[in-house]
């Protein structure tokens, strides 16, 4: 490695980066992946798929009773009505928060998450502390997120897996009767659809 010249040096690629390059070049050579498709996947997940999709589902359910019953009956189809489907969204179940029940979602095994409606999961969702603690002490986790619920509210924890992914339908906050579907979609947060947050009126 020792050489004595004075041109500027590239930062060497890390071992991890080299492993990805190795894998990519082998798969490209075998024509098992397509370079353009790879770029498209990255672009899609970076710019087009995210929690705004889920927020539109929630806002529609809040403003359209028929849609809401379809959503609770067959979430996958009702979500696809709005154009959201694909990997990790094949089998969806929507669980509704009420005055009596609060739902919260986790994947204890890895990080199963409804990509088409929420995008890719936040770091804390993939981290061991959340995955382990939410099952044992959901109230404690909610407290860390600044969410306090009445003592008699039942908390249900749903463990996502490869077959079934959950989306929480949060409670529509009071004082939002005059808001349009579009305005409502703007106040729905990602965390409220995981169950670690509540939606509040603006």
């Amino acid at each position: 490695m020792a050489h004595d010249h004075d041109h500027p040096h590239n930062k060497p690629l890390s071992d991890t980066e080299l492993r990805v390059k190795a894998l990519e070049s082998i798969l490209l050579e075998k024509e098992l992946i397509d370079a353009e498709a790879i770029d498209l996947v990255v672009e899609t997940y970076e710019t087009k798929i995210g929690p705004r999709n889920g927020a539109r589902v929630v806002a529609k359910a809040w403003t359209d009773a028929d849609y809401k019953s379809r959503l609770l009956e067959n979430a996958t189809d009702a979500i696809a009505e709005l154009g959201f489907s694909g990997v990790q969204g094949e089998d969806m179940l929507v669980v509704e928060n009420t005055d009596d029940v609060h739902n919260i979602v986790v994947c204890t095994l890895c990080s199963c998450y409804p990509w088409p409606t929420l995008g890719l999961p936040p770091v804390w969702y993939k981290a061991a502390p959340y995955r382990a603690k939410v099952v044992k002490d959901p109230r404690g986790v909610l407290d860390e997120f600044g969410v306090a619920l009445p003592e008699d509210t039942e908390i249900r924890v749903w463990d996502s897996n490869a077959e079934l992914r959950y989306l929480v339908l949060p409670k529509r906050p009071d004082g939002t009767d005059d808001m349009s579907e579009e305005q409502l979609a703007d106040i729905v947060t990602r965390d409220s659809m995981i169950g670690t947050g509540l939606v509040s009126a603006p």
Binding site: W124, V141, G146, V147, D191, S192, G197
Partner: peptide, 15 residues
Amino acid sequence: PIRGSDLKKTPHLPH
């Protein structure tokens, strides 16, 4: 109530 992007109140959960 905290917003989806405001997770600073959960210091020991990575975010």
